[in-house]
Design a protein around this nucleic acid. Structure first.
Lengths: 98, 98
DNA sequence: CTTATATTTGCCAATATTTGTCAAGACAAT
DNA sequence: ATTGTCTTGACAAATATTGGCAAATATAAG
């Protein structure tokens, strides 16, 4: 299934007419990895996000946010108690910021 | 570090004066595993939650919610963009419920 | 203090998951 | 048909997770 992160980086890449292999070589992985990441078959490693942002001239924080959202979604996908859990975490986060 | 899940099941266990080894034998794992789970050193496996709820005569959904919240927290812990990511996922969840 | 019981901790092996490579195939443009 | 791009699946290597054991530490009782 598709990911927000994958969709976004594909958009960024194609608009700049970059090829998978351009991105792949700069990230130092096989082309197939990037293909899978864009299509949501694989998750990118967190450390690779900053590098990828540079390659795509994209906002590092935007990509990181999308990636985080994908990770969160993986956890709660299909869970009946998802809402409650999300609220609970939001609260906890707000408290820790005080 | 402590987990919401761990804190709660320790509370449930001690209030009923059960020993770690009682819980452990019913869950069919070593005592040390339960100790670690209660202290937040280890995550319990999702499938074990329902069994544990029975052992502790606790609400399965409550425990599952706490467990989910812990998982979510692991993802966003220390992330500056945590808030944004959480909001994004909440939105997505609400949409998928329509 | 000494013993007995409960819990915690560190370490190890087994298992599971993730990551990347490679090769073959699909697809489009020419 | 040939070329170039992208996709897919099988596989191996690297990494992470899991549970058990045993030693260390706490806690309680005598």
């Amino acid at each position: 299934m598709a990911t927000q992160f994958g969709d976004r980086i594909r958009e960024l890449r194609t608009k700049q007419k970059m090829l998978l292999r351009h991105v792949a070589s700069q990230l130092d992985v096989d082309t197939s990895i990037i293909s899978k990441i864009e299509r949501g078959d694989r998750q990118i490693k967190k450390e690779q996000i900053a590098v990828l942002a540079e390659i795509l001239k994209a906002d590092k924080e935007e990509l990181l946010t999308l990636w985080l959202a994908d990770q969160l979604y993986n956890v709660i996908e299909g869970e009946p108690m998802a809402d409650e859990a999300l609220k609970s975490v939001s609260k906890k986060i707000k408290k820790s910021k005080l």
